[in-house]
């Protein structure tokens, strides 16, 4: 999409070990090394990261929002998958 041939990369940050990487935004870069360095300069200026992932935006495979109905709605009525569906007698604790 860019006329100057710089690729768009998506940036994921792990703020500290034990947590998952979370999408932070994107950067333009020529290659993986510049993408990592730019992501570091752009998204971790306040010590937000213990680890960075970058991936070319064009390599992300996304579900189609138009198919959201068929993909996700069928799980909406399967309330028995949630613990709140069940009643536990009053005297029973720690379940």
């Amino acid at each position: 999409m860019s006329r100057n041939n710089w690729h768009l990369y998506e940036v994921f940050i792990r703020s500290k070990n034990g947590l998952a990487h979370k999408h932070a935004g994107s950067v333009h870069a020529q290659d993986a090394e510049t993408a990592i360095l730019s992501a570091r300069d752009l998204y971790t200026r306040r010590g937000e990261a213990s680890s960075l992932w970058i991936i070319k935006s064009s390599d992300i495979i996304a579900s189609d929002p138009g198919e959201a109905g068929e993909l996700y709605d069928p799980s909406d009525d399967k309330i028995y998958r949630h613990s709140t569906f069940y009643t536990v007698p009053d005297g029973v604790k720690n379940m």
Binding site: V27, L37, D41
Partner: peptide
């Protein structure tokens, strides 16, 4: 010369 490089030099 590029916004990303601007930030890097400032760093």
């Amino acid at each position: 010369p590029e916004m990303e490089l601007d930030m890097a030099m400032t760093n």
